[in-house]
C-alpha cells in the first residue's frame, strides 16, 4: 500500500467519524493491517463514580474504532468495513487520569471477513486494561452493492 494512501486514511479517519471525534480519539500509527489509537481521560466518560474509572462502553468504542482502522489499511484495500462481532475482556480498571491506547492487528483476512485482535493499555503498558477480538466485514469495490 502506498504511504500516501496510508497518511490520507490516518488523517481523515477519526475526523470523519463523529463518535470517535467526540471521544477525543487520535490515530497515532497506521499501516499494513495495524493501527494505534489513543483516547484521553475525560470526566464525562466515567462509568464508576466511586473510583473515577472510565466506562467500559467508552473503551469498547475505542477498541472498535481501532479494529476498524486496522481493517481499512489492510493490503486488500477494502472500501469499507463494519463490525460483525466484538468480544471484549476487561482485565483491570484503567487508572483514572491516564490516557488509554489501543493497538489493533488484522491477523487473518479472507475475501469477505477480517479477524482482528485489539489490546488496550493505560500508562502501564506491561499490563493490558482490556483485550478484544472481532470479526469485521470487508467491503471491496467489486462486491459493493
Amino acid at each position: 500500500m502506498s504511504n500516501e494512501r496510508q497518511t490520507k486514511i490516518a488523517t481523515q479517519f477519526i475526523g470523519a467519524i463523529p463518535y470517535s471525534r467526540t471521544l477525543g480519539m487520535t490515530l497515532t500509527e497506521i499501516g499494513d493491517g495495524r493501527a494505534t489509537i489513543t483516547m484521553p481521560y475525560d470526566d464525562r466518560l466515567v462509568g464508576d463514580p466511586e473510583t473515577g474509572v472510565i466506562a467500559g462502553g467508552a473503551v469498547s468504542a475505542l477498541m472498535d474504532t481501532c479494529a476498524g482502522a486496522a481493517v481499512m489499511v489492510h493490503e486488500s484495500q477494502p472500501i469499507g468495513t463494519a463490525t460483525l462481532d466484538l468480544r471484549i475482556d476487561y482485565m483491570r480498571p484503567a487508572k483514572p487520569g491516564d490516557m488509554i491506547s489501543a493497538i489493533a492487528e488484522c491477523y487473518h483476512v479472507t475475501r469477505s471477513v477480517a479477524f482482528v485482535r485489539v489490546t488496550a493499555t493505560d500508562a502501564d503498558e506491561s499490563r493490558p486494561v482490556a483485550t478484544a477480538t472481532g470479526a469485521f466485514t470487508i467491503q471491496t469495490a467489486k462486491a459493493a452493492e
Binding site: I17, P18, Y19, S20, A55, G56, G57, A58, S60, A61, L62, M63, D64, T65, G68, A82, T83, L86, I88
Partner: peptide, 10 residues
C-alpha cells in the same frame, strides 16, 4: 457507531 451501540448494550 458500533462502539456507541456496544456502550448502550453494556
Amino acid at each position: 457507531h458500533g462502539g456507541a451501540t456496544a456502550a448502550f448494550l453494556e
